[in-house]
Design a protein around this nucleic acid. Sequence first.
DNA 1: TAAGATTGAATGCTCAATCTTT
DNA 2: AAAGATTGAGCATTCAATCTTA
Lengths: 147, 147
Amino acid sequence: MRMWQALLSAGALVDRELDQRLKEDVGLSHLQYEILVRLGAAPGRAMRMTELAERLVNSKSGLTYQVGRLEEEGLVRRRPCEWSPRGVMAELTDEGAAMLERAAPGHVEAVRELVVDVLTPQERAAVAAGLGRVRDRLLERRGEDCR
Amino acid sequence: MRMWQALLSAGALVDRELDQRLKEDVGLSHLQYEILVRLGAAPGRAMRMTELAERLVNSKSGLTYQVGRLEEEGLVRRRPCEWSPRGVMAELTDEGAAMLERAAPGHVEAVRELVVDVLTPQERAAVAAGLGRVRDRLLERRGEDCR
DNA sequence: TAAGATTGAATGCTCAATCTTT
DNA sequence: AAAGATTGAGCATTCAATCTTA
């Protein structure tokens, strides 16, 4: 179970560290940064709330709260979904896109320093494959629970 | 960066899932369970608050809070530390030890099902070695910050 | 009635300030 | 003054209940 302990604490410690660095750098939490990243990568820089919540580990109401905060900062805008009138889209503003560009280099560099560069190429491949399967199985199970 | 995404979401998803199962099984959060495990493994089933906080990812005040909750449940007892009069020891009660025995089999089984059995032996070895280093580097850095 | 999203209450977490003992 | 621990305020997260529209 050494493996299990390492996975658990490495995950938590890295998350904490990145959270702190992002707050110092640009004043965003790690979760807020992830939200901006997803929106930035979406077509039209916009996504429905539900779809966004599914990709993040967070619950739906947690997402509502954080998007509300990002909207106050002017980084995100909410607007009704065109093709499904009961949906809501969250859209990255220009200011949000600028913030993302400002935050990304430091964040990527930090991930490299704390994780990527510490692993050998073989370890990187093994982690990507193995934990990718772990994640996929949990996401499937999650889907089943809703049916 | 596929590796990084897998690590981040697998860690969070597994943590969440174990938290839910523990709550359904015995009514403990994952963090509370971890506290009981550390105490159970300590000599005399007791540990100083500070030492406990260092091993967990949590902050000190977070630990004070959770130990308070566990004390209300009768699973943990607080008493002054004999050899260092300003310290406080947290000690597992008999009831706490019983709770641990009740919770452990299901938890271990869940970890096996969700993580261990999903990885090949090579992947297990790579995760243990690589993420072990990631964790150790972050723990060192944490120590330096306090000096 | 069900999907999509939000709100409110209750709990948990973190930071800085405080208290106590050496 | 410094170590060890707790407290309180403020923010974040969850769950269940609600609102709205199809």
